[in-house]
Design a protein around this nucleic acid. Structure first.
Length: 564
RNA sequence: UGGGGCAUCGUCAAGCGGUAAGACACCAGAUUUUGGUUCUGGCAUCCGGAGGUUCGAAUCCUUCUGCCCCAGCCA
């Protein structure tokens, strides 16, 4: 092991190492491996979600930590479901997350080799061509407790098997008529080992191999061998493949692979307040509950990215959730914490008012406009400053004024003084009402000696509120997102009901807001903070005349709690 | 009732026979031109239950219970 690597390992965690790293450490120490090779093996049949992100971070992360390599390998053995659209989006997502595959590979590139190996297994008497129907196979597979029954075609001669398999390959049979099966044990307690299918006939075009093949290998006959071909040392997958491991090894042994990759399973990520399975996400898209796979409410990588999450925050999240074998559901609060932490350091601050209440500064000159300097990011010492426009007429947040405030209310109220962030102290002198009694606007006075937002007389002002110049601001569209599901577990429904019924009706609210004009300078995708409100980003639907922002996450709000 | 897994704070998660890390959440306080950030302190006498081994167990043994995965020519 190089010094550099041991340095990384030491600095990174003296504390604890997940169980996969423990295996790798042992393999490196024992000399079983000199270096490690991993892979991320998605099937290009859909969009990646944050659960995949965890796997990506794990596989690529492991390679990085140990100075090894990680491939991206498309597990494209089922042409019926796969499409180039997905191979592109998957690569985009991985790149966005900040990883670069050592190689981009395809299981379909190994079809020739796989075919040869299948022929070898036939010759060894370990595979046979079967012509049972789906129903017959299902019937003969047996049950959990009872053994299965051997196929009547199980004992064909090698010659006959060879000829039939070749004819399968040549397209002489229809789909479903014939298949190649491994000859293992119909009485095996693990049903996966009851003569599993290795090849099936599918007369469809493959997105990479075109019409070259009409027989396609199954996952089980492909995955381990693909790993072996690529020299994968640690083949990391999710828990549901645990029962497949004996099969994975059976094929490798039967073929006679010497350097066997080791399959290691970990628990896939689940998140509260959302659904994660491809099937359910697809339902949300197909039935138009969301605008698409990249709807900012979706837990897809595309959705999360559009929502404004940073790749750094996702990697941090993946690191924090850990790797173990226990089925678990991580709180969405952790994900939100990760973006807040990242964006707090990086995001520039602006002011925006969401529920405007007009304020007239009665002792301010009618036609004067001032420009105040405001710090773009108080968390960053090198942060630049920007100019914010101020006049006699402003908007403040309706919630920042109360006519009859409770004791702990530090904001504006009749007779009370507050600081307008970066501007002046103002005092509310009069509440102007509409005929129906609702508040129309506020009349306030300002103290010219508090320019910039502070006074030299030591006067304490507890509240600081944000504002915009009503005469010079931007009207923008704000998309306020909440969780797709209010309940932590969307599947908590009564018998016969659907998780769809648990959807949060307010998961998207579109509101008009007023923002300082500086927002114009931000490019699409840029994250920022509306002070005292939350983190936002510029959505791709924005045009120069119409800015659309997505709320990524609110700021933490401890005042909300004290109010209750 | 078959096979394969898993059970440690509200949620994740360390721990691998020597007497319960850490993170998120939560609570209390300090600082603050964001009721944000930051900082300080608190938060499992207990590790699914019951037995046992041991000077000593979350860690070993037995047994029970609960949850997850497996009967696609999906991955």
């Amino acid at each position: 092991m190089s010094e550099e690597i041991s340095e990384i390992k030491n600095s990174e965690e003296k504390s604890s190492v997940n169980f996969i790293r423990a295996v790798i450490d042992a393999d490196l120490e024992s000399g079983k491996h000199k270096e490690i090779q991993t892979r991320f093996p998605p099937e290009p049949n859909g969009y990646l979600h944050i659960g995949h992100a965890k796997s990506i971070c794990l596989n690529f992360g492991l390679a990085k930590i140990y100075g090894g390599k990680c491939n991206l390998r498309f597990d494209d053995t089922n042409p019926e479901k796969e499409d180039v659209e997905y191979v592109d989006s998957i690569q985009d997502d991985i790149r966005w997350l900040g990883f670069k595959p050592d190689k981009v590979l395809y299981a379909s590139s190994y079809f020739d080799q796989l075919y040869e190996w299948a022929v070898e297994l036939i010759k060894k008497g370990k595979a046979f061509v079967c012509q049972q129907t789906l129903e017959e196979m299902r019937r003969d597979r047996g049950t959990a407790t009872g053994a299965g029954k051997e196929s009547p075609w199980r004992n064909r001669s090698v010659e006959e098997n060879l000829e039939l398999f070749e004819r399968m390959k040549n397209g002489e049979f229809n789909e479903g008529e014939y298949m190649l099966r491994a000859k293992i044990d119909m009485a095996h307690p693990n049903v996966l080992l009851r003569d599993p299918v290795m090849y099936r006939i599918r007369k469809v075009n493959h997105h990479r191999t075109g019409s070259k093949w009409c027989i396609y290998p199954t996952y089980d006959f492909t995955h381990g061998q693909s790993d072996a071909i690529e020299g994968i040392t640690h083949s990391i997958c999710t828990l549901e493949f645990e029962a497949h491991r004996p099969l994975y090894e059976w094929f490798l042994d039967a073929i006679g692979i010497e350097k066997k990759p080791q399959q290691i399973e970990f628990a896939r990520l689940n998140l509260t307040n959302t659904v994660m399975s491809k099937r359910f996400l697809k339902k949300l898209v197909d039935e138009k509950y969301v605008s698409g796979w990249d709807d900012p409410r979706m837990p897809t990588i595309a959705g999360i990215r559009r929502r404004g999450y940073t790749p750094e925050s996702i990697r941090d999240f993946a690191e924090r959730v850990g790797v173990a074998k226990r089925n678990s559901t991580v709180s969405l609060a952790l994900l939100e914490h990760c973006v807040r932490e990242d964006l707090n350091k990086k995001a520039e601050r602006f002011m925006g008012v969401f529920e405007p209440l007009k304020v007239v500064i009665t002792n301010y000159p009618d036609d004067l406009t001032e420009q105040f300097e405001a710090v773009n990011n108080p968390e960053d010492e090198n942060s630049a400053k920007r100019l914010v426009s101020f006049s006699k007429e402003l908007y403040i947040e309706r919630k920042d004024f109360m006519e009859e405030p409770p004791a702990k209310f530090h904001r504006l109220a009749p007779g009370k003084e507050v600081r307008l962030r970066s501007a002046y102290y103002i005092t509310c002198t009069e509440v102007i009402k509409n005929e129906d009694g609702s508040i129309k606007e506020l009349h306030c006075t300002y103290d010219p000696a508090t320019k910039g937002g502070w006074s030299s007389d030591g006067r304490k002002v507890k509240g600081t509120i944000h504002w915009v110049n009503a005469r010079n601001c931007l009207k923008i569209e704000a998309r306020i997102y909440e969780n797709l599901f209010e309940m932590e577990d969307p599947f908590e429904v009564e018998e016969g009901h659907d998780f769809i019924e648990n959807m949060n009706k307010n998961s998207l609210q579109i509101v008009d807001a007023y923002a300082e004009t500086n927002l114009k300078n931000l490019e699409i995708g840029k994250q920022f903070q509306f002070e005292r409100v939350g983190y936002f980003c510029i959505d791709k639907d924005s045009t120069p005349d119409h800015i659309v922002v997505n709320r990524i996450v609110t700021l933490k709000d401890s005042f909300e709690k004290t109010l209750k």
